[in-house]
Nucleic acid binder design. Sequence first.
DNA 1: AAGTCATTATAACATTTGTAAAAATCGGAT
DNA 2: ATCCGATTTTTACAAATGTTATAATGACTT
Lengths: 247, 247
Amino acid sequence: MGPTPSPELNGLVRKLATIAQLSGDDERAILALPARLKTFDEDNDLVREGQRPMECCLILEGLVGRYKVLGRGQRQIMSLHLPGDIPDLVSLELPVMDHNLGTLTPVRAAFLPHAALRELIAARPAVAGAFWRDSLIDAAIVREWLAGIGRRTARQRIAHLLCELCVRLRALRLIVDRIFELPVTQAELGDALGLSTVHVNRVLQDLRRDNLIVSQGRTLKILDWDRLRLAGDFDPTYLHLRRTAAL
Amino acid sequence: MGPTPSPELNGLVRKLATIAQLSGDDERAILALPARLKTFDEDNDLVREGQRPMECCLILEGLVGRYKVLGRGQRQIMSLHLPGDIPDLVSLELPVMDHNLGTLTPVRAAFLPHAALRELIAARPAVAGAFWRDSLIDAAIVREWLAGIGRRTARQRIAHLLCELCVRLRALRLIVDRIFELPVTQAELGDALGLSTVHVNRVLQDLRRDNLIVSQGRTLKILDWDRLRLAGDFDPTYLHLRRTAAL
DNA sequence: AAGTCATTATAACATTTGTAAAAATCGGAT
DNA sequence: ATCCGATTTTTACAAATGTTATAATGACTT
C-alpha cells in the first residue's frame, strides 16, 4: 500500500486546476503525496530566510505572507498566498531560502517532502509543467506588485491589491460574490504595499468615503467593482487564470 | 544531419553554468538548438505585451529591460537582462506575454523555437531543472527589487542596483574588476527604480561626491565596493550564484 | 463590568521625492 | 568647426507620503 491519500491535498488540486489542465492520473498522483499536517497561530513563520527546507509547505487554510526584513528593520511583504499555494516550491531548486514565509492569520498547512515532490515531478511531466507554470505566475504577480509600488499612487496600489485578492479568491471558489475576509491589519497592508500605516489608513478612509468599499471588522465588501478596478488600474491578465472568473 | 550547432549559444551554456551543473551531453544538446539570429537597435521591443511568441529570445549581446507601461504612460522596468539570459522563457508556459521586452542598447539575440526547447526539456531533465532554476532566480531578483522599491531610499536603491549589476557581470566573466559600462540613461534608471529622472540625477551626484563611484560617459567605476555595498544594503544571496564571484 | 492590549483614527509636522522648466553639456552628424 | 538632439544638470516649487505622538475604538480576558 502507498502513502495514505490525504483529502487535505484537494486544495492543491483545485488550485492547480485554476492554472493548468491535469489528467485524472495526475490528480491521483498529487493526492497520493505524503503530507505532514501542522497548524500555526497568527504571526508565525513557516520557513525562515537562511533555512534549507527538506519539505515544501502547502497552505490548506489561512493567509501567508512572503517577506523580507531589510536593513533597519523595515519589513516588505512580497506576496500573499492563499489556500492551495505552495509558496516555497522554490526551495526544490534553490536550497537556501532568501526570504521568510509567515502567517498573517492562523494557518493549517501540509508539509510535503522534497523527495516525494521530486519523484512526482520526474514521473509526471504534466505536473512538472503545472508547478513550473505556478512558479511563473507567482513571479508574474510579484512583477505586477513591483510595477505598482514603483509607479502607482497609494490609492491605486490599495485598490489594485483589493481587486487582485478578490479575483484570486473567486478563482479558487473561496468566495462567490465580492465580499471577503481581509484578516490583515493596516500595518500589514502597508508592509505589502510599501506604505506607512498612517497612509494606508488615510487611503482606506478615502475609498470608503467614495463608496468603493465598505468594511466592518475584517469583512470587506467591494461596493463598486468597476470603479474600484478603474481606481486600481487593475487588469487581471497577469494572473494567467485559465478561465478568468467572471469579472 | 541535425541543426547547425551555433557557437553563439555558448553564452547560454556559460550563463547556466553560473547557476546549475550540467553534463557535457546536456551542454551539447543546448548547443544543438536551432537558432535564428537577429540584431536590434537601441530602444526596440523584442517582444510585446499581448503577443503569443512561438520562440524564446536568448540575449547574446547587449542589455534588455523587461517593462510594463501603466495607466498614465508611466513605465516601470521590472528586470534587466544580460547576455545568456532568456527573459521570455516564461512564454513556454504562459502563452500570452504580460509585459514587454525592450532593448536598452543595441542587442544581438538568438530566437529559439518553442518546439525545440520543449523537446530539449523533455529529453534532458537536468536542462529542464536548470531552466526552472533560472526562472526561479529571475523571480528572486524581482522580489529583491520589490523589497527595495517598497522600503529602501533612493540612495539605497541606486547603490543596490549598481552592486547587483557588478556581481552579475562578474559572474558571467563579462568584467573582471569593478568597472563596467552602464549604457543606460538616468531616465531609464529611474524607470527601473521607481524614481524620477531628476532624483536619480541628484543621488548619482551624491554617490560621486562621496567617492563611492566615478563615471565618465557610460563607463562606471565602483571606487569603494564595501561602502557602496553598505550604502545599498546589498547582500548577493538572492542571486543564488553557484560560486559567488568573489566579492 | 473592568482592564488590557492591539488596532484604528486623528493631528501636526517633517521629509523625500516629484514636477516643470530652463540651462548646460555632450556626442554624433553635417 | 558647427549644429542638433539627447542627456544631464540646475532651480524653484509642489505634492505625496512618512514620522511621531496621542486619542479613540474594539476585541478579548479575568
